[in-house]
Write a protein that binds this DNA or RNA. Structure first.
Lengths: 337, 337
DNA sequence: TTGTACGCGTTATCAG
DNA sequence: CTGATAACGCGTACAA
């Protein structure tokens, strides 16, 4: 291995000078810089990130913690990851997906080990054991999503309230009055998932405000469960003309279940899938109309907020909300007269 | 931060003794061990992984490189990741998903920086620039998939040949004689993807051996492309009664396209999807009959092979092939008379 | 069984 | 603008 010492000797300068030129941490005379760079070139020098980390007390690595790895990574999650990784790279960091459960002990071990400078938390629950632990150990972190009381913490999250309002505006704008809501149930990968609870609450309020009757269904996050939900919907509320779905996998099952019931989409029933991603919604037939999860923005802003904290540019408590964006598909239409 | 020195002082032993007890690297008298452990407990000592890595020249971190992150992570890839991570954990390593493109330079920077001990390569192309680079820099690595000439390299891969034979055996066993093959085209995320090319070659040989006429289609990895493939299939070979698909996303489009053509599945046409995962195939209606990618095994064996190399237990050149397993669905049936 | 002393490759401090 | 020199926290021969 070629060390800085080798380079220094070859360029006939001190180790410190080599460090300065490599890191641009101090001004170096052009002549000296040239000599050093030539020496590095000739020797094939590559700096040792571990030594660098030990000396500077930072690895420039950020860990993305995604607990729900037992299932497939949704298109949304991947988009998020990709965007976050790119942003991190632009800011001089490396972001890696670190597979830990939401066991607090594992999280502690990771962060206090010094291998990562900070942590980005995905799939945050309303009461998340990881968060308490991170606060305790003083690890810099930012959340995608938020706990029940996120004051003093840094997070970016989906603006479920306004997204729900927009979704209902869209459906009522088409003329629908019988609008049901299908979400995940308590057995989902992330129990007490903020967006689910906030969407349900907002849905109730908004339906009431519009003088409409709410119909709320919930089911597991599988196509099979979605299919059963179709049956349940027809048993409980056969008059329904539109369903707002916050459960990507179930949306497919719902669609198939309706077809088997002889219900045409969007002729007899409109379906609006909230929080999914276009590429996966395209699998459905007809292609689903969506409120697209702002994965790119969330990833970018999450990393930016975290790096701000890492570099001391910000006190704690940066909060940002982003709405889902409407994406036209073929699963919605005005209700039949 | 609590260092070993602090612990040593508190327990009134030397730093070395603390290290021995922590790592079980030398026998320590029970009395001393107790004192040290108590001191660690009281001080809340957590060892610094970076310093440990610098001194021991190993981080015990393995990077999983997955280049095709521009799109969604298939269920197969996630299963693979999960299984690999678990295996690594059992062996005393941490496996992280490191988002690098398949740019060779980035790979070099990562591995020569010393932050990871070894690399697991996914989505290996038949001619993969990353592989040459890793060989050059002497980085320990193992591949999931293989290059055109993998002699001397360590890999685990899908046994495409035997899987294809099994798939054709199954379909001919049902009575099908007109069997088409739909794969990805050259514009896919991973060009010159080994399984695709090997499956196509084997398909040709096997169809010939059975005295059947081959029909090969290829299309992009999207539902839309799969839909067009349905049209093409009916234009080119309307007599076809079964399709073997090696293109998960297109399989959905194919299914929908056929329905719109008035072709019932599996009544008029059987579909067998090779190399996908059950959870995602369940989205389809009818649920797809599969040859399931052995993601768990591949992940486990890949990590095991890599760790063997990392710990010098093995020379280079461990090769392992695993077949896809049959998984009953509702998209296949005997052909109509 | 325990302790000493040095090495790992870089960064930070402070003096020139 | 440049260069010694001391950390940084831990692993490990080697000595006791």
């Amino acid at each position: 291995m070629v060390t800085m010492r080798d380079v220094a000797r070859r360029a006939d300068v001190s180790i410190a000078t080599v460090s300065f030129t490599v890191n641009n941490s101090k001004t170096v005379s052009p002549a000296t810089r040239a000599r050093v760079e030539q020496a590095m070139e000739e020797l094939g020098f590559r700096r040792n990130m571990v030594a660098r980390a030990l000396a500077s007390r930072r690895t420039r690595v950020i860990a993305l913690l995604y607990p729900a790895l037992q299932q497939r990574l949704s298109g949304t999650a991947v988009k998020f990851f990709t965007s976050a990784a790119k942003t991190a790279g632009d800011l001089g960091y490396t972001l890696v997906l670190w597979p830990v459960s939401n066991d607090a002990e594992q999280v502690t071990q990771l962060t206090s080990g010094g291998l990562v400078d900070g942590v980005l938390l995905m799939q945050v629950q309303l009461d998340d054991p990881r968060v308490d632990r991170l606060v305790e150990t003083g690890t810099p972190f930012a959340m995608i999503g938020r706990t029940r009381d996120p004051s003093g913490l840094t997070f970016v999250d989906i603006d479920s309230e306004n997204t729900t309002v927009a979704a209902l505006d869209y459906l009522t704008g088409l003329g629908h009055r019988r609008i049901a809501l299908l979400t995940s149930d308590g057995d989902s990968a992330v129990p007490h998932f903020g967006p689910t609870e906030r969407t349900r609450a907002t849905y109730l309020v908004e339906m009431g405000r519009r003088g409409l009757d709410p119909v709320m269904l919930e089911c597991g996050e599988t196509p099979q469960a979605g299919r059963l939900a179709a049956d349940e919907l027809y048993a409980r509320a056969p008059e329904t003309t539109a369903v707002m779905v916050l459960n990507e996998n179930a949306a497919f099952g719902l669609l198939n279940g309706l077809r088997h019931l002889g219900v045409s989409v969007p002729g007899d029933m409109s379906i609006l899938s909230v929080g999914s991603s276009p590429d996966i919604a395209a699998i459905a037939d007809p292609a689903l109309t969506l409120m697209v999860s702002p994965a790119d923005e969330l990833g970018r802003m999450g990393v930016e907020a975290l790096v701000d904290r890492l570099e001391g540019r910000e006190e704690r408590g940066n909060h940002t909300l982003v709405m889902c964006a409407f994406h036209e598909g073929s699963s919605t239409a005005p209700p039949r007269r």
